[in-house]
Each structure stands twice: as structure tokens, then as C-alpha cells.
């Protein structure tokens, strides 16, 4: 089963390297483990994330692409849809069968026709437009709603930190 996952991941990797998508990078952490990737997501322009390069890990299950990977930021980040441990909560990372939040339509959720590239692009648009309904980080949601200036301030600081400034 895992061999199938590795084959698929190798072809996704080849695709990502040969057809670069602006603002995202993803690849296995080491050559002998294709089930753990590191990735970079550029902060979208015209948002407080702009200029930051946000790093995350993607952990793939043995039955990938049947089940979705898990995406976890490995940098400081404040966002309503990112749990305090860095795990990202968006519909594309949820298997179609379970809908913990009861608002996602099946088409938005994970299926084998999705890909690493689509996941990363979804995360990028999530950064630009937080989903207020899914409160993975309740404090961040509250700050986003009630004190936007402070939220943006902190996000900007996180963005600077990602590139060591």
C-alpha cells in the first residue's frame, strides 16, 4: 500500500519541480522517506502575511492518496484556522466521509484527485481569507473579529520572523 503512495508522491514531486508554481515549494525532507515533506508557502500579497515565507510539514498516510495528508506549520503563526500546535484545519485536508464542522460540502474536501499543490494553494488562500466559522484557534478568531489591528500587527511580526528579520 505504501509503495503506491510513494509512487504517487514521486510523480507529484516531479511535477512540482518541473512546473514551478509561484509562491509554493514542497519536497520530501530526506531522500529515504517520501512520507514526510517540508513545504514553504509565501504570504499572499496585500495581506499582513505578505513577505513572509511560512514553513510547514506534510505527513502522508500509508494509504495516500485515499486519505489526506496532515499539514502542520513549523513557524510562529497566528490564524483562526491554525491550531496552536500549528496544525492546519481546512476542508481540503478533511476526508469526505467525516465532516467535523458540519458546513463543508463534499466537493471541497479531500479526494484522490486533489494534490499537494492544490493543498498548498488552498492554504495560501486560507491565509488571505480566514474562515471565521471554523475556529481552530478561538483566541485568534476572536482577535481577528474584534481587534483586527492587533491581529495584523502580530501576523506581520510572525512574517518578518520567518525570514529572520
Amino acid at each position: 500500500m505504501a509503495a503506491k503512495a510513494v509512487r504517487r508522491l514521486l510523480s507529484e514531486y516531479r511535477e512540482l519541480i518541473n512546473n514551478e508554481t509561484e509562491g509554493i515549494y514542497a519536497g520530501p525532507v530526506s531522500e529515504d522517506n517520501f512520507m514526510l515533506w517540508e513545504c514553504l508557502i509565501a504570504g499572499p500579497p496585500d495581506t499582513p502575511f505578505e513577505g513572509g515565507m511560512f514553513s510547514a510539514t506534510l505527513k502522508f498516510p500509508d494509504d495516500y492518496p485515499l486519505s489526506p495528508p496532515e499539514l502542520k506549520f513549523t513557524c510562529e503563526i497566528l490564524h483562526p484556522n491554525v491550531y496552536p500546535d500549528g496544525t492546519v484545519c481546512i476542508s481540503i485536508l478533511h476526508p469526505p466521509g467525516d465532516d467535523p464542522n458540519m458546513y463543508e460540502s463534499a466537493s471541497e474536501r479531500w479526494s484522490p484527485i486533489q494534490s499537494v499543490e492544490k493543498v498548498l494553494l488552498s492554504v495560501m488562500s486560507m491565509l488571505a481569507e480566514p474562515n471565521d466559522e471554523s475556529g481552530a484557534n478561538v483566541d485568534a478568531s476572536k482577535m481577528f473579529r474584534e481587534d483586527r489591528a492587533q491581529y495584523e500587527n502580530i501576523v506581520r511580526r510572525c512574517a518578518r520572523k520567518t525570514v529572520g528579520l
Partner: peptide, 28 residues
């Protein structure tokens, strides 16, 4: 040696997703 002064900044609130010790990408 980045040449940029590092002004002390107040700590981020606990709601910021973070495990202490995340290094920036230049360092990593």
C-alpha cells in the same frame, strides 16, 4: 551578521501557534 539591529520585542501572545525554538528559515 545581518547588520540589522534587533530591537527587543514583547513576547507573542500564547494564542500564536508556536513551539518555542522555531528557527527562522535563514538559520534553519
Amino acid at each position: 551578521g545581518t547588520g540589522l539591529s534587533q530591537a527587543p520585542v514583547p513576547p507573542l501572545p500564547s494564542s500564536v501557534a508556536t513551539t518555542l525554538g522555531h528557527s527562522d528559515l535563514i538559520t534553519r
